[in-house]
């Protein structure tokens, strides 16, 4: 067994609308599968967060994680102005009560703007509470992430599922926004992890697998075989995540 212990920043439970192959859905089964790869903890979303309504997703996620010790929930959130989702202060209180250290947004699917007039109050509340903001790259442009990160410099932003063709925009984002990180599940660029470590430091990378939809072994090998030092591998595998989540005020 190798010396790398992983914390997975991108686990997503629930049945996707269009599954490609059979894979396990049950949280405790997924937990055991990941443990086999030395992935000993993780942040978990629910597919309903993107494919349905955030409130729906959060209810199902709470049920799915009941009794599962190593996973922590990521709440899907949206602005409150229409009355269909709680106001920011209540969202934060409910997240803390549920032990959720991170929130995820799907503005493209849910049809809201991430500009301050619509989402500013929500992001301010998350920033104030030290809750990590996560967003899939398919949902928010890198330009928009830059605006969010600049407007909320104390907000920890984790860009998810970044494509391997994005380096030319990702690097200026990293350069200009110290509070932005990415998770590694789909950042499958040849020598991509190595170059980010070289230019920006391993601290900007968080291990993610997008399991159970994706085979977590691919993401694991992406880190263990990276051309970087063992300490950098440990940071990416889990230490960065632990450090980031310890900063979330309870």
């Amino acid at each position: 067994m190798g010396g790398f212990e992983f914390f997975d920043f991108n686990i997503c439970l629930g049945m996707p609308r269009i599954p490609m192959y059979h894979f396990e859905q049950d949280a405790s089964v997924v937990e055991a599968q990941l443990a086999r790869l030395n992935i000993t903890g993780g942040l978990v979303r629910h597919t309903l967060g993107e494919e349905s309504h955030p409130s729906q997703a959060n209810r199902h996620l709470t049920r799915a994680l009941d009794g599962v010790e190593r996973f922590r929930p990521v709440w899907a959130v949206m602005p409150h102005w229409t009355g269909e989702f709680p106001a920011p202060a209540r969202v934060v209180a409910e997240m803390k009560s549920a032990g959720a250290p991170a929130a995820v947004i799907y503005p493209e699917t849910h049809g809201f703007s991430i500009s301050s007039f619509a989402t500013g109050a929500l992001l301010e509340a998350l920033e104030e509470a030290g809750i990590v903001l996560m967003a899939p790259q398919s949902q928010v442009s890198l330009e928009a992430i830059t605006k969010i990160a600049r407007a909320h410099p104390a907000l920890h932003v984790v860009l998810m599922e970044v494509g391997y063709r994005k380096a030319r925009d990702l690097y200026p984002l990293f350069e200009q926004c110290a509070n932005v990180r990415i998770e590694t599940s789909t950042y499958m660029l040849h020598n991509g992890i190595e170059e980010i470590c070289h230019f920006f430091g391993a601290e900007r990378l968080l291990f993610g697998s997008r399991c159970p939809l994706y085979n977590p072994g691919a993401a694991v090998a992406g880190v263990t075989y990276a051309g970087i030092g063992d300490e950098e591998k440990r940071l990416i595998a889990g230490k960065n995540a632990v450090g980031l989540l310890e900063g979330v005020r309870r």
């Binding site: 790869l37 391997y164 499958m188 660029l189 040849h190 020598n191 991509g192 992890i193 085979n215 977590p216 072994g217 691919a218 993401a219 694991v220 090998a221 992406g222 263990t224 075989y225 990276a226």
Partner: peptide, 13 residues
């Protein structure tokens, strides 16, 4: 283009 280690990992695991 894409990461050889990740492609290797999907078979090995």
């Amino acid at each position: 283009f894409i990461s050889l280690p990740q492609q290797l990992g999907q078979v090995v695991f």
